[in-house]
Design a protein around this nucleic acid. Structure first.
Length: 216
DNA sequence: TACCAGGTCCTCG
DNA sequence: CGAGGACATGGT
């Protein structure tokens, strides 16, 4: 794992340079990243941020880090009640603890707890498998695919719909919004291998727009 | 004090 | 299917 993971993107939000949830990067570099899988961590963030402000999610992930539980095995081994208390700041903490537990169990059973093995699966199959996990809906599945696994799929969230609405673009279904962006952005991408990065950056722009337009 | 925040699942008609 | 409700904490 190269150190670029320390600047990993969580659903469009970049982690501050040199700091990951309050832990100095120099510390991580010196001691390695025991009990921490940055790609799994991004998936955890995707679940915890469901209908929740990111400011409530960051402390929860820091709790998990300090508990050395940011790997599927370590997280699953936490006592159920302990896990609930660690993710409490995110709200819906009973449901979310159950979701994280189930997701971890699933990664352990299907992929030996190695999320990189899920990355090796073709995109459509990986998506349908994720959608079978309890607590993982379309937006969360696509967030995991795009940000944790670098798969080229566009994430549709509340900001995306709000932005479209302002432009007079409306659909009924999640996948209609997704395909609308994918079809248009694909045309702009000269090389297909840049698609993932474009989707990540474009979604990040929508997030930035959403946060900015709210305080107005 | 009320209202909201980057969803998902369950239930009922 | 599809509308309606439950889930829960922290910030403004």
């Amino acid at each position: 794992m190269t150190h670029d993971s320390c600047n990993a993107t969580h659903r469009g939000l970049r982690i501050e340079n040199g700091l990951t949830y309050g832990i100095p990067y120099s510390h991580l570099k010196k001691h390695g990243m025991p009990f921490r899988d940055p790609h799994f961590e991004i998936a955890v963030g995707a679940i915890l941020t469901q209908n929740t402000a990111w400011r409530n999610v960051a402390p929860a992930i820091q709790n998990l880090y300090l508990a050395k539980a940011l790997t599927p095995t370590r997280l699953w081994q936490l006592h159920h009640r302990t896990l609930q208390s660690l993710v409490r700041p995110t709200g819906y903490y009973r449901q979310k603890a159950k979701k994280l537990r189930g997701f971890s169990r699933w990664l352990i059973d299907q992929y030996q707890g190695n999320i990189q093995k899920l990355k090796a699966i073709p995109l459509p199959a990986a998506r349908s498998q994720l959608l079978r996990v309890w607590g993982v809906g379309k937006e969360t599945a696509d967030s995991i695919l795009l940000y944790a696994l670098d798969k080229p799929i566009f994430v549709v969230d509340a900001y995306t719909r709000r932005f479209c609405s302002g432009q007079g673009v409306e659909f009924n279904e999640y996948d209609e919004y997704r395909l609308y962006f994918e079809n248009n952005l694909r045309r702009l991408a000269k090389q297909p291998e840049r698609l993932t990065r474009i989707y990540q950056e474009y979604h990040a722009l929508l997030v930035a727009w959403g946060k900015g337009s709210r305080s107005k």
